[in-house]
Design a protein around this nucleic acid. Structure first.
Ligand SMILES: [Mn+2]
Ligand SMILES: [Mn+2]
Ligand SMILES: [Zn+2]
Ligand SMILES: [Zn+2]
Lengths: 145, 145
DNA sequence: TTGATTTTGCAAATCATTTGCAATATATGC
DNA sequence: GCATATATTGCAAATGATTTGCAAAATCAA
């Protein structure tokens, strides 16, 4: 999305970071593909532009600290997707059989106001949470796996 | 807990696995310490018995597949704790400042009956979920970090 | 106790990710 | 645009966590 790219480019400038081919390319992939991708998957689509895997990792790391991208851990290599500031806060349904990953907008942590409950009960101030749901997607279920 | 150890020993036998010094030692640690531990931390307390780090990893892997232990991913090395069959289903509060890890019994996924809702809406059959909460524990909050 | 079967210690391999460094690209002020 | 100070990159080597091959040692069932 052009809007998002422009905004992020500007943000990088403000923070004293350059707008480089590598960063731009990685970001293009992430704004294009909705599911969380591995560094290696991102690299596969930008390597033709002569961009090194290390640079992909470096770009992702920078984006993560700037809250542009968030890391998603689903077992194995980490995955990355645009952060909540650019896409609705959401969680994932991961199919154990075929590996398909879908978004779920429903957040039970927000729905239950869990953050407030925990703060009241324990004094712990929740600032973020990780929630991932695993199971079988409709079609794998049909295939009786 | 003696009860738990006996039960697991019996379970291993049933499934054709031996009851070995390494497995017994790892299990003793896990039934003793309530917070999720890293392989290396477990090893530190059993190395004196001449047990190798590889064996700790192998024991943990076996226990995981037998649903005796569950892996907890909180960033960095994986951690392991007794599985839900032996301890209440629960999640964690991880303090970003001091690293303290507490259990939370409240499960918003169960509370919201999210599994059923998702199945109805999307056909996806949720079988398990991962939820970890990050923030500042009461005392780190007081210290104003 | 014994022989068949598992498991272990150890070292080397693997996998994801990070890092040092010299070469290259980007930004900024002419 | 052009020069140049600074930031970034490619590449290869390092790292940290976890896994693996294999011969030796432990466990198990008879
Ligand atoms: Mn997503
Ligand atoms: Mn726990
Ligand atoms: Zn949420
Ligand atoms: Zn739960």
């Amino acid at each position: 999305m052009r809007q998002t790219m422009q905004h992020i480019k500007h943000l990088l400038g403000e923070q004293g970071h350059s707008w480089t081919r590598a960063r731009s390319a990685v970001l293009t992939v992430l704004t294009t593909v909705p599911s969380p991708l591995r560094a290696e998957e991102i690299h596969r689509t930008v390597r033709s532009s002569g961009i090194n895997l290390s640079s992909v990792y470096r770009a992702l790391r920078l984006f993560e600290t700037l809250n542009i991208v968030r890391r998603v851990e689903l077992g194995g290599a980490a995955r990355y997707e645009l952060a909540d500031d650019y896409r609705h806060h959401h969680h994932h349904l991961v199919c154990d059989a075929c590996g398909r990953i879908d978004d779920v907008a429903t957040c039970p942590v927000e729905a239950a106001d869990l953050t407030r409950q925990i703060r009241k009960r324990t004094g712990f101030a929740v600032r973020s949470h990780v929630l991932e749901l695993f199971g079988l997607c409709r079609s794998c279920r049909r295939d009786g796996r």
